[in-house]
Design a protein around this nucleic acid. Structure first.
Length: 463
RNA sequence: GCGAGAGUAGUACAAUGGCAGUACAUUAGCUUCCCAAGCUAGAAACGCGGGUUCGAUUCCCGUCUCUCGCUCCA
């Protein structure tokens, strides 16, 4: 795929998301706000389905992981202890000539730009934590922060959760929730936004076993994406090396997805202290979808926790293995991977002259609507039966009813939003008490008796 | 924050110093009845404030917002 085509796909997906009610700019009637996105009727279903899938696999299905839902605003001491008040605030200088930017601690005040020998601006603070005030008085003693990650709330609750649930190491605490980062450059649609939702799991282990558990979580995380239908060829692991690693991390592996944009431009790798400038050594497309880090005992130590094994009497500060993924970023990867254009369309039974057809091949667990009920005709007796079927299914699944326009057009509508199954009520249905169930991907149809329909659909959606 | 570009129906695009169009999407009706057919009718837009002008969506200034690049990262 060439670059132009790739950009087109991103633009087309953005349009589709807007038109069909997945995602649109926040507060758009006032021009929107950079880095903030609203999820529409379909988007919220997709997002909920992603979260549901993650929670089921990593909390519900595991006896060694429990959940948590903590607050966005906390006592600011949390962020002092964690190092975020220092770490999320960088002093930067900018070259007045070439506008390259450098961390101020690397240079003396009279230094020249290493790229073009230009003059630097004065130091400027780049703080990526959102500030707010608790209570009506705005001053330094009431300053609080919107959390830039959900992880710290898990760490500070370590002992309380452990005691309440009688958990023994190794065990994990999972949390899904909003985080906020005042990113200097949000962009690429929902890839990087300022308000976003994280699914984080902090898995506490004996430091002697950190390697084993790290590998385990990398593999588990990878498998989750694959099981939800992401093409393996669009996924890869990237191990962060040296200065790419966060200060707290002993080891980090990114799961990267082959996005249709390059998320990082060139930046001087030698001069830049900290992270790598371009994704995985400059390859275009692949960019971080998820990170799995060995955070060692950095966080628990910072908050003053320790752990005692009551059987072996061994006392230690647990290491933390952290799989962390952004819900919106995952949603983008799922949408991109599902977005399929078919030149000329798939129709063989009519000679309609369409240029292309769009099918969103989302995994059935992720599809916003699972089933659409379509009466073949608007004639009274068909719609009545169709609505009865709709009513009989809606308590179990997200079901859509649509009677407007030709049947072919309605199939296209459902294909475009990824609905896996369409149930068509035709004139024979009145006689034989059966309907046809149409598969999104194969367009094949099967005739099912109405009495068996609910069971049939349930089975299809569970398989 | 700096640099560059851009703001016109839901989307993608036109045009114009004097009634703002097209395609797709959408609504109602007719027709058809299993894969975007057709016909008829309809709804729907010039980011905002100022200036120039008889008249500004168009020209000028400002402002806001977005997009791209720089950092940051899920």
């Amino acid at each position: 795929m060439n670059k132009k085509t790739e950009q087109d796909i991103m633009e087309k997906l953005v349009s589709l998301c807007k038109q069909r009610g997945f995602i649109f700019p926040s507060s758009e009637i006032y021009g929107g706000l950079q880095g903030f996105w609203d999820f529409g009727p379909l988007g919220v279903e997709l997002k909920n389905n992603i979260k549901k899938s993650w929670w089921k696999r990593f909390v519900q299905m595991r006896s060694d992981v429990v959940g948590l839902d903590s607050t966005i605003i906390t006592n600011p001491t949390v962020w002092e202890k964690s190092g975020h008040i220092g770490g999320f605030s960088d002093k930067l200088v900018e070259c007045k000539k070439c506008h390259h930017r450098f961390k101020a601690d690397d240079f003396t005040s009279n230094a020249k730009c290493p790229d073009c020998k230009g003059e630097f601006t004065g130091e400027r603070n780049f703080n990526t934590m959102f500030k707010t005030f608790v209570g009506p008085v705005e001053n330094s003693s009431t300053t609080a922060y919107l959390r830039p990650e959900t992880a710290q709330n898990i760490f500070v609750n370590f002992d309380t959760v452990r005691a309440a649930m009688r958990t023994k190491i190794p065990f994990g605490i999972a949390q899904i929730g909003k985080s906020f980062r005042n990113e200097i450059t949000p962009g690429n649609f929902i890839f990087r936004s300022r308000e976003f939702e994280q699914m984080e799991l902090e898995y506490f282990v004996n430091p002697k076993e950190d390697k084993k558990w790290f590998e385990e979580w990398v593999n588990q995380s990878m498998q989750w994406f694959i099981d939800l239908g992401i093409d393996k060829n669009n996924l890869r692991k990237y191990e962060q090396k040296g200065k790419e690693l966060a200060h707290y991390a002993k080891e980090t592996i990114d799961i990267e997805y082959n996005f249709p944009f390059s998320s990082h431009g060139a930046c001087p790798p030698v001069l830049w202290h900290g992270r790598r400038g371009s994704a995985s050594g400059g390859d275009k497309g692949f960019a971080e979808l998820m990170g799995i880090s060995n955070r060692t005992d950095h966080d628990l130590k910072a908050h003053g926790f320790t752990y005692k094994d009551e059987v072996t009497k061994e006392e230690f500060i647990p290491y933390v293995i952290e799989p962390s993924v952004g819900v919106e970023r995952a949603a983008l990867a799922f949408l991109l991977d599902a977005y399929t254009e078919i030149e000329g369309g798939r129709t063989t039974t009519t000679d309609s002259n369409k240029e292309k057809e769009v099918v969103l091949k989302l995994h059935k667990d992720l599809a916003p609507y699972k089933v659409a009920i379509l009466p073949l005709s608007k004639k009274e007796n068909l719609t009545e039966l169709a609505l009865e079927i709709y009513d009989s299914l809606k308590s179990k699944h997200m079901v859509m009813y649509d009677q407007v326009a030709s049947i072919g057009r309605r199939y296209r509508r459902q294909d475009e939003i990824g609905t896996p199954y369409c149930v068509t009520v035709d004139f024979d249905s009145l006689e034989d008490k059966a309907v046809t169930v149409r598969d999104r991907d194969t367009m094949e149809q099967e005739r099912i008796s109405i009495a068996e329909l609910a069971k049939y659909i349930n089975k299809k959606l569970e398989s």
